[in-house]
């Protein structure tokens, strides 16, 4: 990576470093083929939160408006973390699942293709 051309050293702390979030870390999640939600979501979550709590307590508030959300068969759901296949342990924490600050997840629900199959 190149350096910024500047009149003197040009280095700063990242605006979004972990310690700025009062004990939480950021986790992003998008639901593939469900673009009714225009973009993936961003959550500040305790690193110790079990993955199960994330799915069962956090996601409904975010994705619940979609009629297909109730139809998700979670046993068949597929996950990607940073684009790579990811097998979460539902009873382990975010940290123990290897999800660090600003990790990004993609949820895939085969068979659910959005409103009228339009990826909405």
């Amino acid at each position: 990576m190149a350096a910024v051309a500047a009149v003197k050293p040009y280095e700063f702390e990242a605006a979004d470093r972990l310690e700025n979030f009062h004990g939480n870390q950021l986790l992003y999640i998008g639901w593939d083929q469900h673009l009714m939600f225009c973009a993936p979501f961003c959550f500040p979550l305790p690193p110790a939160m079990p993955f199960r709590a994330f799915v069962e307590q956090v996601l409904p508030g975010a994705f619940g408006y979609h009629p297909e959300f109730k139809q998700i068969d979670w046993s068949k759901a597929e996950w990607l973390a940073s684009g790579q296949p990811f097998k979460p342990d539902w009873d382990k924490s975010l940290t123990d699942n290897g999800l660090a600050h600003k990790a990004v997840l993609r949820l895939r629900t085969p068979g659910l293709t959005g409103i009228k199959g339009s990826a909405t």
Partner: peptide, 8 residues
């Protein structure tokens, strides 16, 4: 962002 011409 900070100015590259005056990072201070």
């Amino acid at each position: 962002y900070r100015p590259t011409w005056d990072p201070d």
